[in-house]
Write a protein that binds this DNA or RNA. Sequence first.
DNA 1: CTGAAAGCGCTTACAG
DNA 2: CTGAAAGCGCTTACAG
Lengths: 341, 341
Amino acid sequence: MLGGYGYSSDAIRDRVREAAAGLGYRPNRLARGLITGRTQTIGVVAADIENAFYASAIRSVGDVARSHGFGVIVTNSDENLQLEREAVQLLMEKRVDGIIVSPADLNRPKHLLDAVAAGCPIVQIDRVARGLEADSVTVDNVGAARQCVERLIAAGHRRIGFLAELEIGYLGDVASFLKLVKKAPPEPHTLYPSWQRLLGYLGAHRGAGLAIEPRLIRRVGAYSVAAARATTHALLSGEQRPTALFTGDGTMSVGALEAITALGFAIPADLSLICFDDLDWMKFVRPGITAASQPVHEMGRAAAELILSRINGDTAPVHRIVLPASLTERRSVEPPAEPAA
Amino acid sequence: MLGGYGYSSDAIRDRVREAAAGLGYRPNRLARGLITGRTQTIGVVAADIENAFYASAIRSVGDVARSHGFGVIVTNSDENLQLEREAVQLLMEKRVDGIIVSPADLNRPKHLLDAVAAGCPIVQIDRVARGLEADSVTVDNVGAARQCVERLIAAGHRRIGFLAELEIGYLGDVASFLKLVKKAPPEPHTLYPSWQRLLGYLGAHRGAGLAIEPRLIRRVGAYSVAAARATTHALLSGEQRPTALFTGDGTMSVGALEAITALGFAIPADLSLICFDDLDWMKFVRPGITAASQPVHEMGRAAAELILSRINGDTAPVHRIVLPASLTERRSVEPPAEPAA
DNA sequence: CTGAAAGCGCTTACAG
DNA sequence: CTGAAAGCGCTTACAG
């Protein structure tokens, strides 16, 4: 270098690298990103990070990303379309290589279409927006709900209550939905999870030749424990009480269990319960309840792998991955093996 | 522009901006970051994103960051020092403006010192590493635990069980810790939360002139529900059973409650319970339990505001923010107001 | 096979 | 007050 002599570049290179590492040199990924056009970063727009479902999904996305040298920028839309738009805008400005999103409004995906048009791959998780030709990873809610209800029917139940949020994602009420289903069953993937689960409930009844009793289908109308508690209370206090109850998700399950407790049941002897357990905490609450849980980690992993393959130039047609939900019998807590002192 | 005529630059500028927005122009923050040296990004290294404590903290950090036009890159150390080092390295290469971290190993913060030396501000959350002169946001675990136990003592209890993980963060066992405390009480902020809570337990006893019964202090030794269950079972099955139990965190509380249930108690009539409830789910489990919960959102917000002020050049001495933990009486679930049908 | 130059898209200091 | 130039730290294509 100094004298302009020739030298073995490899050796020098190694020494330079060592020296650099010793001095704490860190390559500047901004500069690299500017030149290569890839930032090695995945953007995530979660509907609600605090929700255990998204927390777990993000964890899996992060694991996969890390193993490929990618980072993850996490944003929260709070189920708010405007916040989601701003989040996508920020992620685009930061030039993430791809975005994983659970769209807050399935009917207004323009900002997502724009992102795709701008060359930013999108993978949808948990939900599929109408008219957005982008990959998706969802759960077979129809099948899972159907399986739950079939199980109750097989156990001899004929009056099965159904409790779900049923507010967003379909513009009519339950009655008009029932009519719609009779005429022309809607494509499941255009519905929000709670309506998909109702579809499964209806399917199980149809399959068993049982009539639908609209009184047993309760729309809570809000994502709230208190509302679910009140609705459950009304359902169970009335006449013609159901002998079994199927709740549409974790929040509804909490409200239902609270109501049952308030009504005086420790573990209900005359009521079978199957609960959707997004949050996987139900095992701590009441042993002996059957729970249907979502394969959250698989979902996060699948979404991350999809986005990475798109980033790497995969141009295959849109992937619509639908994972099965699993039915889990929560075992009663057994006393520990350790002998009592 | 075309003819080189003079023009009102403001009007043109506006029109250019509008046109740009219409065409979907997005400023490239990479380029801006390269030139300004600021990426408007906060890095977070959480010990475990799936844990509701960190999920909530991250949510608050994200809220504060967004309101200042910042993004958040989230990584997960899984309580693993090597993963934490790699995460910090990645964040530095991505040139984040500051890092919020819950150090996995309080005794080996070299990588964090390096980051500070390289000009990257660090804010510690939940824990404080030894010898790291960086801001921190923690909870007054000693005070909170002391308050819980004082409450049990005031209610007349004289035999109070204590259940905590007590594995990491102190190199000796419980007996040697008790000796150490007698000689020279350690600085709380150099201890992990579970030892801090034990310190509070001891303080409450000392304050009331009660002797410590080592048999009542149970080290679970692992962050596991099953282990906590077994330990609780052993404690409650033995002779000289405590009349009250104080559990050191959410996971320990779950195990304790499971063991109590398995032993046949619906709501224990002869046992008072105060539980640390990091996760804030306990209200769903057993009404009537007193819970001490951490002000997670305040912690996240405080950490984000601290890091932003450092990024903006605040050179004040190290801040050590210690937030009070709050004692919450979970009310029994009341039947809904709605009249029964 | 090596090394100097061009350029990614911005911001900022500086000449006109 | 305006506009052209320099430069952030890299990668890549290209001349020697």
